[in-house]
C-alpha cells in the first residue's frame, strides 16, 4: 500500500479512522464508477438523469472525504492517480459486474444502504465536529439514491418471474462481508467517532434491507481472514478490468 510511510506517524485511533474513511470514500468512488459504466443501460430518459445525478453525487462525496483524509497525510495525487487496482478499498460486493438490470438495482440498493449506514454513524460524532457535519451532509444527499433503488425493486418485484429477490439475496451475503462478525474491539466506537459499533451497524443495515425486501435465509458464514483496514477478506484490491474503466486518465489535463 502506498500509505505505508505516513501510517507510522499516526496514533492508533487516527489510523483506524483513516482506514475506515478510506474504505468509505473508495466505496463511493467505485460505486460512482458503477453508475458510469451501467449508464447506457438505463431504461428511461429519467433513469439517465438519475444515474448521472447519483454518479455525480457519489464522486462528490468521495472528493470531500479524500480531502478530509488530507488530515492524515492523504494527498489528491494519491487519492486520484497514483494508486493501482490493488490499493482500492471498496467492498467485495462491487467487484463482480451486474448480470442484469435487476442485479444492478440489487447491488446499488445494498451498496448505497451499507455505505449510508456506516457513514451515518459519524453524524453525532463528538470527537470531530467537522467530520460529523460532513457525514450529515453526505447522508442527506444520499436519501434519494435509496428511494431510487427501492422504487425499482418494488416495480421489478411485481413480476413473478423477476430475479430481483434472488439477486438481492446473493449480493446480500457479499455486502455483509463489509462488517466483521467476530466481536473485535471497535476503536472508533470507543473513541466516540461513531455512535454505534460495527456489530450494531451491521444489524441496522440488515433491518434497513428487510424493510424493503425479505432476505431471511441460511446464515452467512463469517469470512475468514477479514482485515479491518480494507473491510474485506482475502486479497486486497479490485479487479484490474474494473480499475481500468474507472481510473482517471490524461492526468496532465486535470483541472486544479
Amino acid at each position: 500500500m502506498t500509505d505505508a510511510t505516513s501510517a507510522g506517524r499516526l496514533s492508533q485511533t487516527d489510523q483506524l479512522l483513516r482506514d475506515e474513511l478510506y474504505c468509505i470514500a473508495d466505496s463511493k468512488l467505485v460505486l460512482a464508477g458503477w453508475y458510469m459504466i451501467v449508464l447506457p443501460n438505463g431504461r428511461a430518459i429519467s433513469d439517465w438523469s438519475a444515474m448521472c445525478a447519483m454518479m455525480q453525487g457519489q464522486y462528490g462525496h468521495a472528493r470531500a472525504l479524500y480531502q478530509y483524509l488530507g488530515h492524515f497525510g492523504v494527498t489528491r495525487e494519491e487519492a486520484e492517480w497514483t494508486r493501482g487496482a490493488a490499493d482500492i478499498r471498496s467492498p467485495k460486493l462491487l467487484d463482480q459486474p451486474p448480470r442484469s438490470w435487476s442485479d444492478f438495482v440489487a447491488t446499488i440498493f445494498l451498496a448505497e444502504q451499507a455505505i449510508s449506514t456506516q457513514l451515518g454513524a459519524y453524524r453525532s460524532n463528538q470527537a470531530d465536529r467537522t467530520l460529523a457535519r460532513l457525514a450529515e451532509k453526505v447522508h442527506k444527499e444520499s436519501r434519494f439514491h435509496v428511494s431510487y433503488s427501492t422504487g425499482w425493486i418494488k416495480a421489478l418485484n411485481k413480476d413473478p418471474s423477476s430475479t430481483i429477490k434472488a439477486d438481492i439475496r446473493r449480493r446480500f451475503a457479499e455486502t455483509l462481508e463489509w462488517w466483521d462478525e467476530n466481536d473485535q474491539p471497535d476503536g472508533l466506537f470507543r473513541a466516540g467517532y461513531r455512535e454505534a459499533s460495527d456489530a450494531t451497524l451491521r444489524k441496522r443495515f440488515i433491518e434497513a434491507v428487510e424493510a424493503t425486501i425479505d432476505v431471511s435465509g441460511p446464515d452467512v458464514p463469517a469470512p475468514v481472514s477479514w482485515q479491518r483496514s480494507i473491510r474485506r477478506s482475502g486479497k486486497p484490491g479490485i479487479p484490474d478490468s474494473l480499475f481500468e474503466l474507472i481510473r482517471f486518465k490524461n492526468h496532465e489535463l486535470a483541472l486544479p
Partner: peptide, 13 residues
C-alpha cells in the same frame, strides 16, 4: 452548497 458542485475548480480560480 453541494458536495458534487461541478464549478469548484472554476470558482477557486
Amino acid at each position: 452548497p453541494c458536495l458534487a458542485c461541478p464549478g469548484v475548480s472554476m470558482l477557486k480560480q
